[in-house]
C-alpha cells in the first residue's frame, strides 16, 4: 500500500479538487450488470414512478463509487481507504436523454486523526442538479 500523498504534506482544509461525473441511462444499465443490482428503479421509469420516485434514479452505490474514485485518485492508492461511509440524502435523477445527470464531487481534509497511523478524515461533498446527494460522506485514508 503506497499512498502518493504524504501525511505531513496535508493540513486540515486541504482540498481535493471538484470533479464532474456524467451519468446516463446506459451507464446505469451497465452498472446494474456489473454490480448485480437489477432493481428496476434504476432502469425502468414506469416502475420508478409507480413506487413514488420522480424518475429513474442512479444506484446510490454508483454515486458512492464515483466519490471513492475522487478520494482514491487523490491519495494515489484505492487501498489507502480505511473507512468510508455515506448517507444517500437525495436520489440522483437520471432523465431518459443523451445527457443524463451530472454529479459534482469534491472533498477536503477535515481532520488529521493519527500521527502514527498517518490517517486523515476527508469530508466529501456530492451534488447533482444543485442538490446535495450524499450526506455525512466521510473517508478515513492512510497517507504516506
Amino acid at each position: 500500500m503506497t499512498a502518493r500523498i504524504s501525511y505531513d504534506a496535508v493540513e486540515v482544509g486541504t482540498e481535493v479538487p471538484v470533479r464532474e461525473f456524467r451519468v446516463n441511462r446506459a451507464d446505469l444499465v451497465r452498472y446494474a450488470g456489473a454490480s448485480g443490482d437489477f432493481n428496476p428503479i434504476h432502469w425502468n421509469e414506469t416502475f420508478a414512478k409507480e413506487v413514488g420516485l420522480p424518475d429513474v434514479i442512479a444506484h446510490g452505490a454508483y454515486t458512492m463509487a464515483e466519490a471513492a474514485r475522487v478520494v482514491s485518485d487523490w491519495a494515489g492508492d484505492p487501498g489507502a481507504l480505511v473507512e468510508y461511509g455515506v448517507r444517500f440524502t437525495r436520489p440522483v435523477v437520471v432523465p431518459n436523454d443523451d445527457k443524463g445527470a451530472v454529479i459534482e464531487i469534491g472533498a477536503k481534509v477535515a481532520a488529521k486523526l493519527d500521527d502514527e497511523a498517518r490517517t486523515v478524515r476527508l469530508d466529501i461533498t456530492a451534488t447533482s442538479a444543485g442538490q446535495k446527494v450524499l450526506g455525512r460522506a466521510r473517508a478515513v485514508v492512510r497517507l504516506a
Partner: peptide, 28 residues
Amino acid sequence: SLGDTNPVYTDPEAARALGYPDVIAPPT
C-alpha cells in the same frame, strides 16, 4: 462500469507496483 481507468484494477503489474499480489477491486 464506473468509467474508472485506474490501472491498479486491471493491470497486475500496476497492482504489484503498489505492493499488491494481484489486481485489487474498487473500494465499493
